[in-house]
């Protein structure tokens, strides 16, 4: 009895420095969701809104914020992109090193012209990307997101379900953060600034 109790005490005494060491060594916590060990680095083959074929290599050296949406989106997309625009506004000079990639999950309706018009409303850091079904599915599968189409109404409009998250990649193209629409603004600004610096 006393023997097992003293053994327990010894284990507990050992645990204290180990826990302290673990917490002391770790970097300060990110305020949005850290996905460093969960998701793969940035890779895709798509067409940019200017019509040129682009891969992820093109954006190495930049902090990339990637979002999946569609230009007919009534709520989540404009709100999210608007929020990102505000984030970039608060970053001042650091914003130059950030690119926002808007990948359309509705390539049928979103042609290059529609994409150009849509992203230009938010700023020059915003780039629209589109691809055929296969290229798009390769990318969405890689980041474990999906999309789906609702039934079209009388005038041919249909709703599209898509991911509401923004994926952030560092300058090396490694996946770092997942930004949710519920994350407070100042948390997003602080984390993106930390990625840039």
């Amino acid at each position: 009895m006393t023997d097992s109790r003293s053994r327990l005490r010894r284990v507990l005494l050992w645990l204290i420095p180990v826990v302290l060491l673990l917490t002391a060594c770790g970097e300060p916590e990110w305020r949005t969701k850290d996905i460093s060990n969960l998701m793969p680095s940035l890779a895709f083959e798509l067409t940019s809104e200017t019509g040129e074929a682009v891969t992820a290599e093109r954006y190495r050296g930049q902090v990339v914020l990637m979002f999946f949406g569609f230009t007919h989106c009534p709520d989540i997309c404009p709100v999210t992109l608007g929020r990102l625009k505000a984030v970039l506004g608060q970053l001042d000079d650091d914003a130059e090193d950030v690119t926002v990639l808007f990948v359309t999950v509705d390539p049928k309706r979103d042609d290059l012209k529609a994409l150009r018009q849509y992203t230009s409303a938010f700023g020059e850091e915003f780039v629209g990307l589109r691809g055929d079904r296969q290229a798009l599915d390769t990318l969405t599968k890689r980041y474990r997101v999906t999309y789906g189409y609702g039934e079209p109404d009388a005038s041919g409009n249909y709703s599209v379900s898509h991911s509401s998250a923004v994926f952030a990649f560092d300058r090396q193209g490694d996946a770092r953060l997942l930004i949710r629409d519920s994350d407070p603004m100042e948390a997003v600004v602080a984390d993106v600034r930390r990625l840039v610096q």
């Binding site: 999946f68 969405t140 474990r144 997101v145 999906t146 999309y147 789906g148 189409y149 609702g150 709703s159 599209v160 379900s161 898509h162 991911s163 509401s164 998250a165 997942l178 949710r180």
Partner: peptide, 8 residues
């Protein structure tokens, strides 16, 4: 919601 649903 974050990753998108199979259908809406």
């Amino acid at each position: 919601a974050v990753c998108g649903r199979a259908w809406p």
